[in-house]
Nucleic acid binder design. Structure first.
Lengths: 306, 306
DNA sequence: TTAATAGTGTCTATAAGACAATATTGC
DNA sequence: GCAATATTGTCTTATAGACACTATTAA
């Protein structure tokens, strides 16, 4: 991405209270020795895969999956964490995220979006570490590339995120509403469960939203929050952007696309309305599915123009 | 906000490859001496104010305003910057933003939302500094509190943000679309202008969006980008949340609320449709405007329940 | 009386929900 | 033929756009 060096700096040679030009000031400038945080770029890498089909006639179901890495050292030894790493001095957080993604999965040139910066005190027991989190969307066909990793154990976990409990408490001049969501991550061997609470405090003048981890079995750090944040972003954007198309292979059927929407939203959709809605996001091709055990389906691709 | 100390850490006394428990590991852990960034919390403090009315009968217009502070030292000496400051070791970025807001305006308990973390290399010529940016919404009645500042010169600038140019270039397997927006900030004495480009690169598999400052007259650092980000967020959320109500005083007319929507969206709205749309967000009171030179208007307040 | 805003009614256009009818394939 | 999915049609309902009509006040 193009950087934007601030062009205005120093153009006028104005002097500060010490009589220094900007050039002189910068030459003398030394970073103070006050404490600074480490900043990590952590990624929620999301994909959608097929499950086994029940019969030769039925279509396979789809699952939302997230890549996790088992921690090989303290803290959280043995727990599962998001792929990520520290941002280096001569790169942006975007570049750090893209680098991590490449190292972890080998893929490049996929959809990547910054989510949120998490900075709770004590979120990393070692030191002061903030996490600038990202979401990457890759299509299931890329999935085989996960091997060849640097010894770290990585696995794809099926993710579900459901409203579990809802509470509303009326206070002096407003209310506090708490929504607890259950995040379940399951691989072939393990099932991790966390409960993330979103607390909305609405008062006369202000509204604030805070996230908290209420229960957490098997995930490292505050990564349950980050995964929840990614799923919420995905759910929010799927209805008014073409974001879901980044989870599709180059050619796909409308039913497959609908399944992806359904697995993201955790909700069944009506076929006719769905097709009307995505009509502008996709383009017909002349290809069809074959040997499906039933009527073939036209294949579509993502439509770039608008 | 409640912190969420990771509860799972150390619960099992598992040993790492060096045979250490988590407690032993953490006791021995020393932060490495690799380079770390400073992280600033920078805030776009937004309010809406009345302009002078043309006649005793006409209603005043509304303006979107943003608080800026003139830099008293290098770099960008004399330029205008967003209020902000470095995040300290025992606070979150949210807390740092709230602290800055309190110091700068005296207000507390207002709407505050994290926007985006900017980390371009060279965005601060002094050192490696990331900016975790925030947007605060305060109502115009709070505005007089800006005085009593610590010597720094602060001023409210009227903000407009308009599409200026649109370009679409077709490349190998997709296109590059560039939208250039003009950001104008005017106070009584000064007018600052910047042009921010949003470049969407859409290709077969990926879509990426980058922001760049194309022109910049009078704003420090990359703050034009941050202000653009805030206005875009505000425009996006105004249509499907009650966010605009945080810019209103406790009692307001529906026409005033409509003016606020219009000044945010930079677009005129139809009265009947607007009133239908906000009907659920507000609650009637028994109060009316007085001495307006025309028919009085019912006053409403923000409705908290849903 | 008048200028200005307040508030409501209604017709139309568009999109979403609900459901049903018809079309094709492999076995 | 049958099970399963593909694709389209249409009726209903909800929402937004467009515009006009009536109501009410201070000067």
């Amino acid at each position: 991405m193009a950087n934007n060096p601030p062009k205005e700096a120093g153009e006028l040679d104005v002097l500060d209270r010490d009589g220094l030009t900007e050039r002189e000031f910068l030459e003398r400038y030394r970073v103070g020795d006050y404490e600074r945080p480490s900043v990590a770029a952590d990624m929620v890498i999301v994909t959608v895969t097929d499950t086994e089909a029940d019969s030769y006639r039925k279509l396979p179901d789809k699952e939302l999956r997230v890549l996790l890495i088992r921690r090989g050292g303290h803290p959280f030894l043995g727990k599962w964490a998001l792929p990520g790493g520290f941002v280096r001095p001569n790169e942006t957080t975007d570049q750090a995220a893209a680098r991590e993604l490449r190292e972890e999965t080998g893929v490049d040139d996929v959809y990547l979006e910054q989510l949120y910066t998490f900075s709770d005190v004590g979120r990393d027991p070692r030191a002061w570490v903030m996490s600038c989190s990202y979401m990457a969307l890759i299509n299931g066909e890329h999935l085989q590339l996960q091997a060849g990793d640097d010894a770290a154990e990585a696995a794809w976990f099926k993710a579900t995120y459901r409203l579990l409990r809802e509470r509303k408490e009326h206070v002096e001049d407003g209310y506090v509403k708490t929504l607890e969501y259950e995040l379940k991550l399951s691989s072939e061997e393990e099932e991790l469960t966390a409960v993330v609470a979103r607390t909305v405090t609405a008062r006369a003048t202000s509204t604030s939203t805070a996230y908290a981890i209420v229960a957490n079995d098997g995930l490292a750090f505050d990564h349950a929050k980050i995964i929840a944040c990614a799923i919420e972003r995905l759910r929010g954007k799927v209805n008014y952007t073409d974001i879901a198309l980044h989870l599709m292979p180059p050619l796909f059927t409308l039913t497959e696309l609908q399944q992806v929407y359904e697995v993201i939203l955790d909700k069944e959709l009506l076929k006719a309305a769905f097709r009307r809605k995505v009509a502008d996001l996709v383009a017909e091709t002349d290809h069809y599915t074959e040997n499906a055990g039933h009527r073939p389906s036209r294949l579509y691709r993502r439509r770039l123009e608008e």
